[in-house]
């Protein structure tokens, strides 16, 4: 039986290519509906509503107009909407996942809530963060990074940030705009200000 054969490895990744928009992020421009939007917000979600925005650049500093970004995060109490997290709230409508394509100038934006702290494997708190996956033409496999927040004192003790050379931590830190619930983080796929990507 075909079904009983143990695979000899995982299916390799291939690029999303330049033409994913009509399938993955149509946003009203094609005859197809969006499975996901760039917002995690639901009517019943509690927590501080924030916007995270920025641009994506390639190694020449040129804006990348055909990236797809996906975020994954817990609720304001640090609980993931996944039964594998034993602390997950049953029946909450908050899912913690969103998707956004970059526009012609490389801009992206997410509407979400400030995530709560999540424990590391030793049970110690990590600083609040959001996971970010970056897909694009020219990217044979997506890249994983994290979004931290400039106004979180916990960053100094975060065990993952501690793995990152001090002079590169800014590439993971979204900066809060004065007086607004808006954070800004540009992504650089390559070059002097290259974003830190993780081998996970």
């Amino acid at each position: 039986m075909h079904e009983s054969v143990k695979p000899d490895g995982i299916t390799p990744s291939q690029t999303v290519g330049p033409f994913f928009k009509y399938g993955l992020t149509p946003n009203g421009e094609y005859a197809w509906n969006d499975a996901f939007t760039n917002s995690t917000l639901t009517p019943d979600v509690s927590g501080d509503r924030i916007r995270i925005e920025g641009r994506v650049f390639d190694g020449d500093g040129v804006a990348v107009p055909d990236c797809m970004l996906e975020i994954w995060q817990p609720d304001a109490q640090g609980r993931f909407a996944d039964p594998q997290d034993k602390r997950a709230l049953p029946n909450a409508s908050f899912r913690g996942f969103a998707r956004c394509g970059t526009d012609k100038d490389g801009n992206y934006a997410f509407e979400t809530i400030k995530p709560g702290a999540v424990p590391d494997p030793d049970g110690k708190p990590q600083a609040p963060h959001i996971l970010l996956a970056v897909f694009g033409r020219g990217m044979l496999r997506h890249l994983y990074t994290r979004i931290y927040f400039s106004d979180e004192a916990g960053n100094a003790a975060d065990p993952v940030l501690a793995l990152v050379p001090t002079d590169r931590r800014a590439t993971l830190t979204a900066v809060r705009e004065a007086g607004k619930p808006v954070y800004r983080l540009d992504l650089h796929l390559q070059g002097e200000n290259e974003t830190v990507f993780f081998d996970v």
């Binding site: 190694g59 999540v118 033409r137 993952v160």
Partner: peptide, 17 residues
């Protein structure tokens, strides 16, 4: 060529995230 990181990816332990 212009969209692949030049710096090595940083290994880390998987957390709940």
């Amino acid at each position: 060529i212009k969209r692949a990181p030049n710096k090595p990816l940083i290994p880390m332990r998987h957390t709940l995230s």
